[in-house]
Structures are given as C-alpha cells and as structure tokens.
Design a protein around this nucleic acid. Structure first.
Lengths: 204, 204
DNA sequence: CCTACCGATCGGTAGG
DNA sequence: CCTACCGATCGGTAGG
C-alpha cells in the first residue's frame, strides 16, 4: 500500500512540473526557459527537478507526443466512420478549436516548439503529423468527389483550415467574454458558407 | 567619394547578416541561434559580426519593425481608401498571402519571435499590431453594417482571417508547384463564399 | 529535496 | 576582420 501512495505522489509532482513547464515554454519558448526558471516556479532547486524528470527534453517530448496522440486517436475514430466528409471535417475542426482554446499552453507548445524535439522523437512526431494530414486531405478529397465541397485544392484547403484556428491558443485565455460555442459557430459558418451573403457579388 | 563607397559596402554586409540571421531564426528560433552559428554561416568569426551590428537583439528589432512597417503602411493606404469593405479585406489578405509566401524567413521571424524583442521595442511593436488589428476590425464592422458581410463577430473573423494564411510561411518554400495566384484564388474563394456549394445543407 | 559544483557555451569586449 | 578572452549562465551530476 505504501509504495502505491509514493508512486501516486511522485506522478502528481511530475504532472505539476510538466504543466508549469508548458506555461513557461509558451511564454518564453523552450530554449528561452531555464531549468532554474522552472524550479523556482514549482518551488524547488533546479537540481531537485531531476528526481521527477529525466531531462528538459523529456518534458517537451511528453507534451508534444501526448497531444499528437490525442489528435491521432480522434482521426482514427473519425476517418473510417459513417459521417459524410463535411461531417468529419466538422468533428475534426471542433477538436482543434477545443484543444486550442481550452487545453491551454499544451497546444502552443506542441505547435511552436516541436522543432526542438530531440531525435528520434522529432521524426516520429513529424511522421504522425504527416499521417494525420494525409488522412485529413483524403477526407477533403472525398468531399470534393461527392460534390459536397467545391473544386478547391485539397492541400490549400487543409492547411488553411488547420491554420485558421491557431489564434485561439494565444487569445482565449485573456478574453473570456466569448465562449467556445460562439467561437465554433462563427468559424464553422465562415468556412462552410463564407463571409458574404450569397447574393453579394464579390468577384472582380 | 571614398567614404560613400565604404558606407555602401558596410550596409550591404549588414543586409547579408540580417537575412542569414532571419533564416537561422526561422530554423532554430531566436534564442536557439547563436552568434557563432550566424558568424560561420556568413563566413567570419563571431566577434567580427559586431563591426556590422550592435547586438543580437538589434537584428531581431530590424526584422520585426521593418515588416511591421510594411503592414502598417499598407493599412494606412487601404483603410481610408474608396474600396468597399470587402475590397479592402481582399487587398489586405492579398498582402498577407504575398508576404507569408514570398518574403521568406522574415514573416516567420516576426510572427514567432517578436516576444523576444527587448523593451521598449516590444511595447512599440505590440502597439503597432494593436492599431493594425483595430483598423482591420473596423473594416469588418463596416462590412457588416453595409450588409456586405454576414453577422459574424468581427474579432473572431479578423483573427481567423489573419491566422489562416500563416501556414504559407512554413510551406511554400518547399513546394513550388502551386503559384501564389492559385493559392490566393483558393483562399479568397474559401473565405468569401465558403467550402460548400450553396445548395448543400450543412447545418445539423 | 538540497548544497556544491561540473564542463560547455553563451553574448559580447579589448586590442590590434 | 581576427585572436584572446570575459563574466554569466546553461543543463545536468555527485553525494548526501
């Protein structure tokens, strides 16, 4: 019984360290954050951190891979499902919006600091991302073939979609007036039927 | 005459250093790039760099402010112009697409590394950005009031628009098959009239 | 979890 | 533009 409790306490401390690290990495970047910064934030000496984590790199690995797994798991659920392509895209974008606006610093760290991952983790991470993007592109392609989506370049469409919700990670935490549902509704409306009313002639 | 030539040569070398620095900052981040990295890339010793630049910070300041000025100048031209709100938005988005897809590492550095600017430049930079965003939001608001743009939240719309073209900075240089015009056409189409054909019922 | 400390490396300067 | 070098600070270890 006692060892179990010990393990539980240790795990919890590690979680605190990783979460605080994510906050600092978002604020100052991975390279710009020192182990002494992190230590003072969690209330210990820098050397003591190493009783809970193996290295600074390990923290980044943990953050990036756990979030990458969340995305991959959702994709593996949605991709082979019975939703229409548009339905699948809506499910996936909803996940991106939710993660970027709620799961706080983790999303920023994965998005902005993955390039500092040590090998071979960096390659693994990029492979996961490549697979995710491939599946997403395929969904868009299917939507085009079914006539649900216009004749657009699937890759341009994919990257524009994924990119467009990233601002939430820098913004939401300072502005709580708008809730996630409003944001989601606005963004979905923009993407699915556009900025303009249909009768408006915008082409030059 | 001779001093003039001297000045010209010096300026040119400084430009080379700044451009190479931008490339390295994009690849490894501002903090992760050392003056020794930069020196070896431009073919001199680290100490020699300081004959051309005052500090590492100065390089970042130069990159961020020059690009911020480009955006502000365009805004000050477009904002009071006679275009309709949608016309103004198209002009501005076209600039963002062009800068993100062509002016290479500069855009990435401004977007991703501005938080490492020293004060008071950081405050100045953020003030410029705030003003830019305010003007852009106002254009969207006017579009809504004129009935050109749907009833969307202007800030959500703004951030989604600006965010959505950022992927170009990481992507375009490795993939030259698509030219800027195609990309622009696809993105404008997505934003202005949406992903779906109008007859398609996408709401749940 | 701390004290004490390490080798390496950082941005930058002195002096030529 | 280089050699020589600086004080500071980095991630991490030893040993308790």
């Amino acid at each position: 019984m006692l060892p179990k409790v010990d393990v539980a306490i240790k795990k919890s401390k590690k979680q605190i360290i990783v979460e605080e690290a994510a906050r600092l990495f978002r604020e100052k970047g991975f390279v710009g954050t020192t182990m002494r910064d992190l230590a003072s934030e969690v209330g210990m000496e820098a050397a003591s951190l190493y009783n809970h984590i193996r290295s600074k790199d390990e923290i980044l690995i943990e953050i990036c891979l756990s979030l990458a797994n969340t995305y991959s798991a959702k994709m593996d659920e949605v991709y082979p499902s019975d939703y229409t392509p548009i339905g699948k895209i809506k499910k996936l974008i909803a996940l991106h919006i939710q993660i970027n606006s709620m799961s706080s610093p983790l999303a920023t760290v994965m998005n902005d600091e993955w390039r500092h991952l040590p090998e071979p983790t960096k390659t693994k991470f990029l492979d996961m991302r490549k697979r995710y993007e491939y599946q997403f592109t395929d969904i868009i392609q299917q939507g085009i073939e079914k006539g649900e989506i216009k004749q657009l370049d699937p890759r341009i469409t994919l990257y524009t979609l994924l990119s467009s919700v990233r601002w939430l990670q820098h913004w939401y935490h300072a502005n709580r007036e708008l809730d996630v549902k409003d944001i989601k509704d606005n963004i979905m409306e923009m993407f699915l039927s556009g900025l303009t009313d249909n009768q408006y002639e915008w082409k030059n």
